[in-house]
Amino acid sequence: MFELILFVVFAVVALAAAIGVVAQRNVLYSALLLVLNFICLAALYVLMNAQFVAVAQIIVYAGAVMVLFLFTVMLLPGKRIEVAGRRLPGQTPLAILLALALGAVLLLLLGGSLVALGRPAHPAITVGNVQALAEVLFTRYIWAFEATGVLLLVAVAGVVHLLRSGPRPGAPR
């Protein structure tokens, strides 16, 4: 019962924060609401007995990714508040239509997977300790793990090149 209450609380806060990210006009507030959403999801991961993933979520998303976002928001000059109106013609009805279509597809796919799942309808308590996760990660998924390292290295090199080779801020365009 206690777990159910925790789930409802964190799910509602996560949903509210996500809606806030989309609805908020100020980019800075959107970024801060995104942190709230990430933290609520980390709490839900703990409820699912995925402790290591929850800690990684806090460190990677609520830490590193959000610092990147906030620095970019604060360092870019110019307006941070989106002006209402001035949209593409027909953007809002088209967005509503596409969102409804996506919702239908999601309902179909996720509902289908849940029906196919059948009996074990409750998350197991047995899986989820860090030792077991490390054993799977470093044996069966070792090549994916190594490839992730290479990907991060390439991303860092690409970012450094991209930001060094552009025109200087004071230079004429």
Binding site: Q57, V65, L117, P120, T126
Partner: peptide, 21 residues
């Protein structure tokens, strides 16, 4: 966790790395 398998958690770690990049 419904399938009592750790593959989901490993995939989530990969997704996090790709998302950071």
């Amino acid at each position: 966790s419904a399938h009592q398998s750790l593959d989901g958690q490993v995939t989530v770690l990969m997704v996090m790395a790709v998302a950071a990049a």
